[in-house]
């Protein structure tokens, strides 16, 4: 049974939520989620690339020859990544400095290539748009959630874009920041616990 547009969009938010349900694209998930802001920024950049590359791949799917499709996908994806990189440098420079090498690494993010290969190359433009946007937003939320948990436990407070902030010590005055959570091993443990939690309530 063919899915509707809405279903293609919402599957990225839960059913096929990339880092937790498919366990894909984990490198940035572990690398940049030291704070909620970094996680969301990375997610938005990936969403832009995913959305753009899905549209283009879908539009060109009848022209791109089967044998060189991966090369064509990579050209399209790499172009979008470079555009994102330049735009971030031009408008959100501090975030660009923090995300550093992870922005160019979106090129090799398996989610982006995976969606181009598995979905956009076989489906109509509108459906590919819905798919790209859904998966992208799901990815952004997942990164944001993981970043929020790690920042909250590791720093004792969460700050997003300077104004929105929450301090854990207002609720628990005796809370001591657990800096282990913002280091690399904390990322693995936090991700593992989230996977466990999501699998437990998943089906």
């Amino acid at each position: 049974m063919p899915k509707t547009l809405v279903q293609e969009f919402t599957k990225g938010l839960w059913e096929e939520l990339p880092p937790f349900r498919l366990v894909l694209g984990l490198c940035p998930v572990l690398g940049v989620t030291t704070s909620m802001e970094n996680g969301l920024g990375m997610g938005i950049a990936t969403t832009f690339v995913l959305f753009g590359s899905n549209i283009l791949v879908s539009m060109l799917r009848s022209i791109i020859p089967q044998k060189v499709r991966i090369a064509c996908f990579i050209i399209i994806i790499a172009s979008f990544v470079t555009i994102v990189e330049l735009l971030m440098q031009a408008y959100t420079y501090p975030l660009y400095l923090k995300l550093g090498v992870f922005i160019p690494l979106i090129v090799v993010n398996c989610i982006v290539l995976g969606r181009a290969e598995a979905f956009a190359y076989k489906n109509k433009v509108l459906y590919s748009m819905a798919d790209g946007l859904g998966i992208g937003i799901g990815y952004t939320l997942a990164l944001g959630a993981l970043g929020a948990i790690r920042e909250l436990l590791g720093n004792g407070s969460v700050t997003v874009w300077g104004d929105l902030s929450y301090n854990l010590s207002s609720a628990f005055p005796s809370f001591q920041p657990f800096s282990f959570m913002v280091q690399a091993p904390g990322a693995f443990i936090c991700l593992g616990l989230m996977l466990c939690f999501i699998n437990a309530i998943g089906d």
């Binding site: 064509c72 172009s79 735009l87």
Partner: peptide, 28 residues
């Protein structure tokens, strides 16, 4: 297909690069 795609990508990137250059310099 590969040639056309690469050339178009190159052209677009050059345009974006040029368009953002002064803004990037200001940010730096």
């Amino acid at each position: 297909v590969l040639t056309v795609l690469s050339s178009v990508a190159g052209g677009v990137l050059a345009a974006v690069n040029k368009g953002t250059a002064s803004q990037i310099e200001a940010q730096q």
